[in-house]
Every structure is written in C-alpha cells, then in structure tokens.
Amino acid sequence: MTQPAIETRGLSQRFGDFRAVEDLNLTVAEGEVFGFLGHNGAGKTTTIHMLTTLARPASGSARVAGHDIVTDPLGVRREIGYVPENVRLYDTLTTRENLTFFARLSGVEDASDRIAEVLDFLSIEELADRRVGTFSKGMRQRVGLAQAILHRPGILFLDEPSSGLDPMGMKMLRDLIGRLNREWGMTIFMNTHLLSEIAKSCTSIGVLNHGRLVFHDSIDVVMKRYGDEEALEELYLSVVPVNAKGEAA
C-alpha cells in the first residue's frame, strides 16, 4: 500500500483568539487532483501555508510526501512545488533568469536543460528572454507555474491559480494541471472558490467552512450523488450555509 501524498491529523492554526484552521483531518492520495473549496477567509491559504512549511501549526500534525511538516521541513520542501496567488516573481529579471534562480535554490543540477524542458512543456519558449515585469497576468501565472515544477516535485500546491485569469487563461491552466497530473504524475492540491474549476479539474474535493472540514469525498461520488456539475453548487450550499448577508454562516 502506498503512503498518502498528504495526511493531516488534528491540524490547527490560531491567530490570537481567531481559529483559522481547526482539527483538520485530511488524506490526499498520491496522483490525486484535490480541490480545496471554501469561502474567503475559510482557512484554505492558512492550510497551504502549514502544508508547505511556511507556517508552523498551533497543534496537530501533518505529513507531506512522508515527511513531517514540523520536524522535517526541508524534506517536505524537496518534494513540493508552490504557486501563491498573484505571484509576480522578479520584474527586472527575464523568465530564464528567474527560473535559473529558483532551479539553483531547489538544487537542480542540470538547470538549463530542465528550464528548456519546462518552457517547452508550458509552451512559453518565446518568453524565455523577456523581462517578467512586462508580462500579462496569464503569462505571469505560467511563469509562476514553471518555477514550481522545475525540480519535478511530487506534489504541487496551487493557491487560487485561476484568480484574475480570463476564460482562455483558465482553460489553458486547467489543461496544464491535467497534463502535470497525467504525464508527470504530480499530486495536485488546489485552493479555489470556483465550483466549475473543481468539477472540470479535480478527482477529489474537500470543503472548508470557518476552518473546519465539512465535506471530503471523490468527485465521482459527488457526481453520482448530485447528478451533474451544476449540482456542485447545491452540495456547497448544503455544507456551507449562508446567512442573510450572503456570507458563510
């Protein structure tokens, strides 16, 4: 039996009296595309920060690619790639210079070959020697993705990857996520609040409400139970009720 790509046990995070994430028990199997759904402020980014070792949990534990996030953060970092929301990279440097920098930090030996491979994979060879500061949001997002997959991580964390993208950009990103999962065998952990993205990209789904995991199952089960993609909204509203102001209750 293979170990899960991500496994959390009672994972919690607090900021003062505010409980950002509470008692999160979650398992993401290897090779899954996991969609983490929730309203703004539900604790999705905080969860990613803990799993990527950017923040220490207040309590509980988690293992990513078999490494404990608290006792072996460097082990975790060797196995993951991360794309934050609205990543900008270094404006004055070219795409190639940005990627060389991140490849070196990841300890990639054959950096120039790997960069060529990634640029080809993402079809952004023409951006290689242009400064990142001149790029559109969609271009930046692809370069952001390039820096995250340079070292061929086993697990890729994406925080609101489709934020600010036009429909064309969203489709392109969706295709890339699918290819990374199928062709490179990456496990994808994706924060989003777009139900349509979950339906089109993910193999499993978790819903977070005010820091608590209120739903977790495979997308196949969801589809069988609720019928079609449109019904995802019905599912979401059933586990995350809204108040009179339209906010998550």
């Binding site: 990527t52 070792t53 950017l54 460097l74 970092r77 060797r78 993951i80 790639g81 991360y82 934050p84 929301e85 609205n86 990543v87 900008r88 990279l89 270094y90 404006d91 991140f102 930090l105 990841s106 300890g107 820096q147 964390f157």
Partner: peptide, 15 residues
C-alpha cells in the same frame, strides 16, 4: 514581501 517571492524561496530546501 510584496511580490510573494519570499514564500517561493521559503518553500525551497533553503534555511
């Protein structure tokens, strides 16, 4: 901080 590159660096095997 502003470009979020700090987060990118700190998710590398860098102390």
């Amino acid at each position: 901080r502003g470009r979020q590159t700090l987060a990118l660096i700190m998710t590398r095997p860098v102390k």
